[in-house]
């Protein structure tokens, strides 16, 4: 068994030193996932594994045998963008674009954590079953993704428009 990347079964590397990030970029030529710091500090390499966001630079590919990896290439395509990709365009959620795939994969994983009720550093009530999709929550939960162009406000606008609205809808019910 190999690793399932965007729905396709691919072989594990023979060398256990190969990171999941290098497997994606260098061997599978899926260059959407970016190498920023390569030491777990920037979030540019964020991908989804079985729906959970992780850092592919700190992941040895051999550890992910049988797991399902989704990269930015698996989220959307030209002419069929993921809603979050479209929102990033509309809200200027990037300038150079290097951190963008990681930001988007991270946000997709983030919203599942929020819906599941995973607490964050800014969650006031740990006992609450529903956590508000507030700006503070979204910002804290995206703090593992750095943007050196400083597009964070646009990024937050894009995420809030795509996912924040559901809170208001829920609150109104």
């Amino acid at each position: 068994m190999g690793i399932i990347v965007n729905g396709t079964d691919v072989a594990l590397p023979d060398d256990p030193r190969v990171s999941l990030l290098d497997l994606l970029r260098e061997r599978l030529r899926l260059s959407g996932t970016k190498k920023g710091c390569d030491q777990g500090a920037c979030g540019a390499c964020t991908v989804l594994v079985d729906g959970q966001r992780i850092l592919s630079c700190l992941a040895l590919a051999v550890q992910y045998e049988g797991r399902s990896v989704t990269t930015i290439e698996g989220l959307g395509d030209e002419g069929a963008l993921h809603p979050l990709q479209q929102a990033f365009i509309e809200h200027d959620g990037f300038q150079c674009g290097y951190c963008t795939p990681g930001q988007i994969c991270s946000a997709v994983g983030m919203i599942e954590e929020l819906r599941r009720g995973v607490p964050s550093h800014v969650t006031a009530d740990l006992a609450a079953t529903a956590i508000p999709h507030s700006r503070d929550e979204l910002r804290e939960r995206m703090s593992g993704n750095l943007c050196r162009c400083g597009a964070h406000n646009g990024i937050m606008d894009a995420i809030a428009e795509t996912y924040g609205a559901e809170t208001h809808a829920e609150a109104a019910e």
């Binding site: 966001r53 700190l58 994983g109 006992a127």
Partner: peptide
């Protein structure tokens, strides 16, 4: 950090965990 009994019985532990690293790293 998200386990119900940890949040109710040992809130300092849940708080300490979510104060550390980033969500991606905590998932790993």
């Amino acid at each position: 950090a998200e386990h119900g009994l940890v949040r109710r019985r040992y809130p300092m532990l849940a708080r300490a965990i979510v104060a550390g690293a980033s969500p991606q790293i905590r998932n790993m």
